[in-house]
Simulated assay, not measured.
Amino acid sequence: MNRFRVVQATLERELAKPYAYGDPARSDCFMMGCALVDALEGRSTVRAYAGTYKTLTGAQKALRKRGFSSLTDFWTTELGRPPVAPAEAQFGDLVILTLDDGAEHVAICIGTRFRTKTPDGSTDHALADVVAAFHIG
Rank of each mutant, 00 (worst) to 15 (best):
T52D: 04
C29I: 01
S70G: 10
T123C: 10
T98E: 15
A103R: 15
P86I: 11
V46C: 08
E104H: 12
D101A: 08
W75Q: 07
T45L: 13
S44H: 14
M31W: 07
P83I: 03
E104A: 12
V46W: 08
E104L: 07
P24Q: 06
P82M: 08
C29E: 05
A87P: 01
R64S: 12
G137P: 01
T45Q: 08
F68T: 06
P18G: 05
T77S: 14
L15R: 09
D120I: 05
C29K: 04
G67Y: 09
G42H: 11
R43S: 13
V7T: 10
E88L: 14
G42I: 03
Y49M: 03
A107S: 13
R3D: 13
I108Y: 07
A50T: 05
D28K: 08
Q8K: 15
G42S: 04
T76W: 09
T45D: 07
A85G: 04
L79R: 12
A87I: 10
K61D: 15
G102K: 13
Y49V: 04
P18N: 10
E88Q: 15
Q8T: 12
L40H: 04
F74E: 01
S44P: 00
I110W: 08
H105M: 03
F74K: 00
Y49P: 01
I136K: 02
R13Y: 10
I110T: 15
H125K: 07
F74I: 01
D101Q: 06
A50Y: 09
H125S: 09
G121R: 11
G92E: 09
T77I: 12
G121A: 12
R26N: 08
C34D: 00
T55Y: 07
H135G: 09
G22E: 06
L40G: 05
T55A: 03
K54V: 04
D120V: 05
Y19P: 05
T52Y: 00
T57M: 02
T77Y: 08
R26G: 00
L63E: 01
